[in-house]
């Protein structure tokens, strides 16, 4: 361990934060969203099973109620976040060209945030009946 200190910059040694406490952030958030998704996915699948072949009015009446709407929004946030973290690793593993990798990662972030936001707004619209 003392040897490893040779490679650290003087500033890093003064701060004494190791990897500035962000080294495990990706790993940890992947787990946090995974644990959250377990009950959310089960509940959402149960709602969806009741909506097979349903018309728009039934979908609005079911998903628009406060509890199902909240569960759906939580599911969307956790799922898009979890997907972003997971697909990010797939890109980092298989895309070796630096420019293509960077572009893919940017596109992934933008797509997850934009589509995630759009679907959350859609649920809010169903719930608020606007």
């Amino acid at each position: 361990m003392a040897d490893a200190n040779r490679y650290r910059s003087p500033l890093a040694r003064v701060r004494g934060l190791g990897a500035a406490k962000t080294g495990t952030e990706h790993f940890w958030l992947q787990r946090v969203t995974a644990v959250g998704l377990i009950p959310l996915v089960i509940l959402f699948v149960i709602y969806l099973l009741g909506l097979v072949g349903a018309d728009l009015a039934t979908v609005k009446a079911t998903l628009g109620r406060p509890v199902p709407a909240t569960i759906t929004i939580l599911l969307l946030v956790a799922a898009f976040w979890h997907a972003k973290l997971g697909i990010q690793v797939i890109i980092e593993d298989y895309v070796h060209h630096e420019g293509t990798k960077l572009a893919s990662l940017l596109l992934l972030s933008f797509a997850c945030i934009a589509i995630g936001l759009a679907s959350v707004l859609a649920v809010l619209k169903l719930a608020l009946g606007i």
Binding site: L56, A79, G86, S119, L121
Partner: peptide
């Protein structure tokens, strides 16, 4: 990993379904 990537696409289908329900 494969199912994870596939579910990313499934999420797009879910988003399409929800956005369409809100659209009309």
């Amino acid at each position: 990993r494969i199912t994870g990537a596939a579910l990313g696409i499934g999420l797009l289908l879910l988003a399409w379904w929800l956005i369409a329900a809100a659209a009309g």
